[in-house]
Design a protein around this nucleic acid. Structure first.
Lengths: 208, 208, 208, 208
DNA sequence: CCTTAAACGAGACGGTACGTCCAGTCTTTAA
DNA sequence: TTAAAGACTGGACGTACCGTCTCGTTTAAGG
């Protein structure tokens, strides 16, 4: 999902050549501007001016600032990386989740934060966020978790979808409520606690 | 925290009597309007008009829509309820967390969602949300969790603060990303999974 | 001076076509509204609303209500009429000054009064009033007076500029201080007294 | 006319003691503030603040800024001076008119200008200006002019009221339209021209 | 190679809301 | 009992952007 918006489809195919030039420039300008000033402080007018583009050109392709920002982020992220598979689920989750954490701590995180804010009052954005960002990664994660269930590393009586929520929930909690920093070093510990639970463990203890 | 804003302190004591009248009317109108139209669709101008109040009267007391909404929510919630204590931590957590869930599912949730969105680009709001909403409840929760640690119901090697994140993270994840409904019936199951972990359990899976 | 504001020059040439539509509507609405309610009771907001135009559209072209009113007046007056020349200076002055008097007694006078009031505290307006209203007419008048000097109808030792002040001073005095009505019938008498002076005349007397 | 407003009579007599203190302070503050910033840039709020007085205290005594300014001016001017009488009307007029000119050129002129502006859209102020400022001085002037008529220095067929307008008109013209400075040195010349008229004079030009 | 229709930059437009200032009124408090 | 102090409603201010529209001007494709 790097080209046209997930909210309104591409206006029409075949008119592409001249388009691409402004198109990318707009996405990149929007991204840079949001990172620089913060999502709430950026206006479409400012993006148009900075991109050397007319406002209607932006409105032709994106229905709102949120839709533009969302595509800007996806344009920036590029392909979703495959979930690693070393055999140990804790290690693989740490790798993957640390990817998410470092994205959240970087410039993309600034934009992402703004988009999630927008999604709170714009259902179209909310849907697009789930469709283009959350769900692809969730599916990947679920796939790896299912494997782990198969080989007996995880319980089979918990839906993998719910496992994803238990794992990512605390990450988003910190990201959006700012109660604590997202420290990649502590990710493995966090995962271990989700996997092992909070009750005292009989013998081996599970501090990972 | 039901009276003056947490962002700018009360302008001065002693001028209260006439104030209270408009003050409460504004808070209630703001709340009702946000619930009715959604946070993003409500303007301070509309709140002033609906409350039969001049715009400057609002600006005299609150620096922004977010600050007003936050106080409106706290004015509405009133006192924080004590954490229940039946002896079983899972039961008590379910009781408490279900309180949060039902609040999120009701009108307060609509306003709260908007405030969290605002907090993403307004650090003052973010701080006020933590100070007046998150932290009091977190401290209460931590207190009960510490008790449970003492009586051997929970591990002693996990900071209670982190336990709170593991418990509430998935709740906020669903609340803000809308990946699934927040169903109070499933809360005990969710808590059980956080307490027990995702790894297969030897037999009964439990408190050892 | 009937077109663009005398205070800020025309924003740019060539952008005219779409502009003219609102432009004229605004000028005419402003004029009508001021005549109807009085200069001081008219707001830019009301003009915008009555003209079916956004407030910023007005502010784009005129920096203040005074500037707008001034252009509205000039737009209304149109071209400055040539000074008549019958050969007798008293007759010609009466014709010309009566033009001014009837303007002051009509709707334009209502607006003009407001602009002169504004000019008392806004130097830009004061300058524009002189440049676009007073001076062109003064120059015309001076030209005719100079002719009269040449043919011996007027003294050569009084600057024509000062003559204009002696002639128009009493008109404006009544107009702005409201000490008496401006009655066009009495204009020739007034002029005669300025021309002949207040001292007793030897024989012929000049009471016109 | 130095005490209560000419627009609404004195609120009540006998309440004087506490009043006088604020009363004068307000008048003096208003005057100073208007001179400093210009009539249009001064608000009643600012006057109240600068005088250390509540706004309602001002509204209790004066119905508007114009009424306050007018009284401030009269409070400042104090008594109207008697018209001088040396025997030569030209000399006496020069003395008197130069008094007016120097007032117009000083701080009082700044306030007076603002009041006249206000009078353009507030008939109550306009009337008060005539009643308390213009007319007393006009009557004085007329009295002296009538004397001059009696002794044959001035024509008997021109109403003295009109003579006043011919004399003061050009002064106010310059004062309000700013076409030229009001130079006291040139006042005698101006008066001479009004008295002698603009037509060529046979020989000595003069009192016949 | 030349036309011609689209997409473009530019920015004016009707509007909405902003956050502020001040007017003029009303209430409370202190003297 | 009075008036100071100042909070109040309310209207307008001048500004920032919104999303739409109307302009010429590229510009690349098809004739």
């Amino acid at each position: 999902m790097t080209s046209a918006s997930a909210i309104d489809g591409p206006p029409e195919p075949g008119a592409a050549p001249r388009r691409a030039r402004s198109h990318d420039k707009i996405l990149e300008t929007a991204f840079a501007l949001i990172v620089e000033r913060g999502y709430g402080r950026v206006t479409i007018e400012a993006i148009a001016a900075a991109a050397g583009v007319g406002k209607p050109t932006i409105y032709r392709w994106w229905p709102s600032k949120g839709a533009l920002a969302l595509e800007a982020i996806n344009h920036r992220i590029g392909t979703v990386l495959d979930f690693p598979s070393t055999g140990d689920i804790a290690t693989d989750l740490a790798t993957q989740i640390n990817g998410a954490v470092s994205v959240m701590n970087g410039p993309i995180g600034v934009v992402y934060r703004g988009i999630i804010a927008e999604a709170q009052s714009d259902p179209a954005i909310a849907t697009a966020v789930r469709t283009t960002i959350i769900e692809p990664r969730t599916r990947d994660c679920q796939r790896r978790l299912a494997e782990a269930v198969t080989v007996g590393q995880l319980r089979g009586d918990v839906p993998t979808r719910e496992m994803v929520e238990l794992l990512y929930g605390p990450i988003y909690y910190r990201f959006l409520l700012g109660t604590d920093v997202l420290d990649p070093v502590r990710t493995p510990q966090l995962i271990a606690r989700v996997l092992d639970g909070l009750r005292p463990r009989p013998a081996n203890g599970g501090a990972g």
